[in-house]
Design a binder for these strands. Structure first.
Lengths: 324, 324
DNA sequence: ATGAAAGCGCTAACAA
DNA sequence: TTGTTAGCGCTTTCAT
């Protein structure tokens, strides 16, 4: 691979001049510019970003760490991030922690070692990863889930209110024994959605905790169906879990919404194509990503500013699965 | 941020010794090791990967460039890649080209500048990006879609045979006017699936080309429905397009499979939950990712070996949408 | 077994 | 406007 010195020699100038040309400094003689550009083309020269990053002590890469790239929520959010990042001159690389704290720690370590310009993270709950980030000087924005014990810029939705609306919706529809399937303790979305459910319910809550995956939703629903306190409606605190629950009900021949009503949190792409179509609490995913990216860009320019928390609204989308 | 020299001073040794300790060289006195590790902990030292990469002239990051992270096909494939990469000591960063050749070129340029250890790419069709990769010394593996004009390691499925099977399946079910919705010209999957369709059909093909997105499938189906040669069945050459087609049929009140039969290429996660459930040509997505990662790891160790092409089989999954 | 020193490729003072 | 030079933080000979 040719270096900047090869280009300099070829063009008959110094490496500094090549650097100036390539970085668009205006203080270069047009004739030199032409010679340099010719040499660059002829040699097929491509600047070594590693060397540049080392010298400048900064990079133009953002790491976005999400717990599940298979979850449409995150892919849509990432789109929002990308669109803003690109405008601001950053490239986005996606890291999939797969809901595993260990993998999350690995990716956080990599992002810090690689001196990434910033990190956007939807925490899988690793306290260690959170501490690493907070102890480092790297700008961080937490999305979807609050960072454990972290005072950082955060973009979330109003989980509690969304869950309350979903639960109230089921009660209003005439269901009387409404259960809740939620995620692991310590993950803020799981806890807040549970709290919203409990608040709306009034009576004695029936709760199953599982992981945020489709299989978790399936298993949780199976458990509820065979429990003595079998519910006639379920608020499921995530989209993938809701799909699992729906599949479980279909497998068991339980009629939805007749025998059991269902509301999920967060849209699924084909909520209107599944049968019965799925009532959901929709989140402004793309906007959430945009907002997070804007906060990160601001944080990079003003590292000392006070951390902001942005709470975006949710919207109940009533469909067939909750229409008794 | 503390550097290796800070650690060296703190531990009362040279930077070279710190480096040896941190890289697990066995030729270091145990007492020194202990002192170094203590210093590392106390200072919260984290090696600067940028500097290391520069010095070593190599990195441990793989770039995986896909055209659509919202497509479950790619997320599943990425999982397979990740699992192998991790074992081999690499971290995977995902780049979303969003079916845009320009974005793809940006990411390829970034991967090359950043001296990534390897690139796995599902091309969105950019000839320029392909040329950049081929001209560079970076190990490359093409997945899903062949790299334009590229003699590189490639992992694909048997697109032609899969399309043939899907079309034959529709004919066998009694449909007689089978159309095809496929992707952009120049993208190998689009062209090969079209060829398989035409081969199985025998008669005069009815083809609509669009992009590989849900909206594209919707629009293509709408066009077919109002065309004079209105088909009674459609082979749709991608999963997202098939969903779009299904939605279009639902919106128009066209009965599936009665009035129009439908087969999609590649699974969708909830193919069995949508109504009617969707007949698909399933691909071994996870295995495809694993295979690609293995090829890349091998390529890195043996750059001169002859490029291999792996073709994986597909499997028809008959469901309701094609059961006349 | 350890340290001194060179250098990966680039940018940014500084000097001319 | 251009070139010289130092140095970003690390690894790796080469001496010792």
């Amino acid at each position: 691979m040719p270096t900047i010195y090869d280009v300099a020699r070829e063009a008959g100038v110094s490496a500094a001049t090549v650097s100036r040309v390539l970085n668009g400094r205006r203080t270069v003689d047009p004739e030199m510019v032409a010679r340099v550009l010719t040499a660059v083309r002829e040699l097929g020269y491509r600047p070594n970003a590693v060397a540049r990053n080392l010298r400048r002590s900064r990079t133009t890469l953002w790491a976005v760490i999400v717990p599940d790239i298979g979850n449409p929520f995150f892919t849509s959010t990432v789109r929002g991030i990308e669109d803003v990042a690109q405008q601001a001159g950053y490239s986005v690389v996606l890291c999939n922690s797969d809901e595993s704290p260990a993998k999350e720690e690995t990716y956080v370590a990599a992002a810090l070692s690689e001196q990434m310009a910033g990190v956007i993270i939807a925490s899988s709950g690793s306290v260690k990863a959170a501490r690493c980030l907070l102890d480092s000087p790297v700008p961080v924005v937490a999305i979807d889930r609050e960072l454990p014990r972290g005072a950082v810029d955060t973009v979330v939705v109003d989980n509690e209110e969304g869950a309350r609306a979903a639960t109230r919706h089921l009660l209003d529809a005439g269901y009387s024994r409404v259960a809740c399937v939620t995620g692991p303790e310590g993950v803020s979305t799981a806890d807040l959605r549970l709290r919203g459910y409990a608040a709306a319910l009034g009576g004695a809550p029936v709760v199953v905790r599982t992981d945020f995956r489709e299989q978790g939703g399936y298993d949780a629903m199976a458990a509820l169906l065979s429990s003595p306190a079998r519910p006639d409606a379920v608020f499921v605190a995530s989209n993938l879990m809701a799909v699992g629950a729906l599949r479980c009900l279909a497998d068991r021949g339980v009629e939805v919404p007749g025998e059991v009503g269902l509301v999920g949190f967060d849209e699924i792409p084909w909520a209107d194509l599944v049968r019965p179509s799925l009532t959901t609490v929709a989140q402004p995913t793309y906007e959430l990503g945009r907002m997070a990216a804007r906060l990160l860009a601001d944080r990079i320019t003003a590292p000392a500013a006070r951390p902001a928390t942005v709470v975006l609204p949710t919207e109940l989308r009533p469909r067939r699965s909750s229409a008794r």
